[in-house]
Design a protein around this nucleic acid. Structure first.
Lengths: 162, 162
DNA sequence: CCAAACTCACTGCGCGACGCAGTAACTTGC
DNA sequence: GCAAGTTACTGCGTCGCGCAGTGAGTTTGG
């Protein structure tokens, strides 16, 4: 079993925590750089990432939830993307209150091309990991994602300290 | 050696890429939630994270570089943090143009307490990873961070497509 | 030495993303 | 079939941010 009091292990935890912070800080800068390069805002890039990752088109509310924006701001966000030609609005036939936001592939080609280019280099990082290591990394990311989700819930439920 | 054409391996790459995107998306929401909870902005929280991670106080320019802001915006950022009592400005004796930004530990106590609380739960994720796995994860994060850094340089050097 | 060139932090100014509150269209539940 | 809830949208005000310029301070070259 894992001994939590093991000093070597504690050191590994600390290193991993530090690298995580650096990694996340680098991601923020990276996302900003991608947005600047495309003449968009980081939020817009984030939204396009969400839309392309999902198989089905999202509603405005779903976009709002997944970006942390209000529905009002999400409307403006979709306005910008629509004006830029990145997405189209389609009314939902099932629920006529809803609006489906569909990405426009040909307009997104340049964006995805950039992602693919950057992602290709990124994949070379993985080449000298064993399959077990890759599984371990993936598992950690998934569980960290899930935890982050529940932590957000907790934070929103906690009373504001002021 | 690793066979890059291995379909199993390609599948692992794809999974890892997807989990990374989800993980990073969750982080953005998490950081936002922390900021909301403290009555600060995500950028401010990011800056406090930078300051506490560093052993020595940073200058305004260093903060600007590490957050991706201009020096002007960094000045306003430090203004907000100083007004909130999170940091103090100290003139640099070596170079009298520079201003050193020092975090105020007692004011940051609440922030770090929140981080520690959330980090404690986070550490339990690591408890059922072997030491080798932890090293693999840490290594991947570090290399991804380094790559992100060089990619930002590349992006800034690339001409804007428009 | 001293003047030009550079760097640092800071300051108006304008833009625009965002939250808030209210509205209309539509759906669901009692 | 009416009330309550949901969805997307719209003024309005706030404020973080980039841009361009300023002065203090430092470095460099003749």
């Amino acid at each position: 079993m894992t001994d939590v009091t093991d000093p070597d292990r504690a050191r590994l935890y600390e290193e991993l925590a530090l690298e995580s912070r650096r990694y996340l800080a680098a991601y923020v800068l990276f996302n900003q750089a991608v947005a600047d390069h495309l003449g968009l805002h980081p939020t817009d890039v984030q939204c396009l990432s969400l839309l392309t990752a999902e198989p089905a088109p999202l509603t405005v509310r779903q976009i709002a939830d997944r970006t942390g924006l209000t529905t009002g701001s999400a409307t403006r966000l979709v306005d910008r993307l629509e004006r830029g030609g990145y997405v189209t609005r389609t009314p939902d036939r099932q629920d006529r209150r809803r609006v489906l936001v569909t990405p426009v592939p040909e307009r997104l080609a340049r964006v995805t091309a950039l992602w693919d280019d950057l992602g290709q280099t990124w994949q070379t990082l993985l080449d000298d990991h064993s399959e077990d290591e890759l599984r371990a990394i993936t598992r950690h990311l998934r569980r960290a994602h899930d935890l982050g989700h529940t932590q957000v819930q907790r934070l929103r439920a906690m009373p504001r300290p002021d």
